[in-house]
């Protein structure tokens, strides 16, 4: 599988389909000791470098790819080694005009069954699968911890979540690591919503705004949760919203590049004539 990824990447560079391939590199340690190699992200520009390419551990590149493309000349094209969730993130970023479709290519890799279980991933493979065998999806709602978090009456759940979210140290890691949390300016940096100067960040103004902002774009990659130093199970918040969209609209973010979010379109096609949006919504001065 790794060799396939390397071969595809080499031909991408040789045939100038892209100017760089974004993935992980392993730099061999200079000592003879085992396990001393360094693994980190890298933009491979030379086919010769690709001997050092690795695909483990799980590392997400969609947002990095976006920042690289933004700061590069318009002619620069990038290929990205993508797991299922990362491919979905790339597609969402294209749909939201954050990445130009013609400047990005993906090399799709399948996750192992083990990885799928760790991530509770429903689709541990990209739609465009170039290497590896697709593992079976996992139903997150069968997971004990997720059930524990999502079950019970309103009061019980509120208590549970309030206790967890009280831990928040306001690192902004969930926002920073989320591949599709890209708004400028960010509502979480607006003092109207989120107080400055103290922790924890408020449950409703910070965490619920963030969760709802992502309700129809979350690709369930788990980056938010993995970046949380205090182990708040943030993915559980998103999973239930994803499930509602799937059940009610047959919609899943990041699968079909052509399909627009039902939250933006299906609702607006049937507007309620009596209802007007409150005037204050657009009046908040956004700080840049």
């Amino acid at each position: 599988m790794l060799d396939t990824v390397k071969n595809i990447s080499r031909s991408i560079l040789r045939e100038r389909q892209a100017d760089g391939v974004l993935g992980l590199t392993r730099q061999k340690s200079t000592t003879l000791e085992e396990g001393m190699d360094i693994i980190q992200p890298h933009v491979f520009a030379d086919p010769g470098e690709l001997d050092d390419l690795v695909i483990e551990p799980k590392w997400l590149f969609a947002k990095l790819a976006m920042t690289i493309l933004r700061s590069s000349p318009e002619s620069y094209r990038l290929a990205v080694i993508c797991r299922g969730c990362d491919e979905r993130a790339v597609i969402e970023l294209i749909k939201r005009n954050q990445i130009e479709k013609d400047r990005i290519a993906t090399v799709g890799i399948a996750c192992s069954q083990e990885q799928a279980s760790v991530c509770l991933c429903q689709r541990p493979y990209p739609e465009k699968l170039d290497a590896g065998v697709a593992a079976e999806g996992v139903d997150p709602f069968q997971d004990g911890q997720i059930r524990e978090l999502l079950m019970g009456d309103d009061g019980t759940r509120m208590e549970k979540w309030a206790k967890l979210l009280k831990r928040c140290i306001k690192c902004y890691g969930c926002r920073n690591s989320c591949p599709i949390c890209v708004c400028i300016p960010c509502k979480l940096e607006d003092e109207v919503w989120v107080d400055t100067g103290s922790i924890p960040a408020g449950m409703i103004p910070y965490h619920l705004i963030r969760a709802f902002h992502l309700s129809d774009t979350c690709v369930a990659c788990g980056a938010c949760q993995e970046a949380c130093p205090v182990h708040i199970p943030l993915l559980a918040l998103q999973l239930s919203m994803r499930e509602i969209l799937r059940k009610n609209f047959g919609y899943e973010a990041g699968i079909d590049p052509e399909r627009k979010s039902p939250v933006l379109f299906d609702f607006s096609q049937e507007p309620s004539p009596e209802r007007e949006l409150p005037a204050w919504i657009d009046s908040l001065k956004a700080k840049i």
Partner: peptide, 13 residues
């Protein structure tokens, strides 16, 4: 750094 032995891919503000 997701590979770091202490921080395991997390950071503070």
């Amino acid at each position: 750094d997701r590979e770091h032995p202490v921080s395991h891919g997390t950071l503070c503000i």
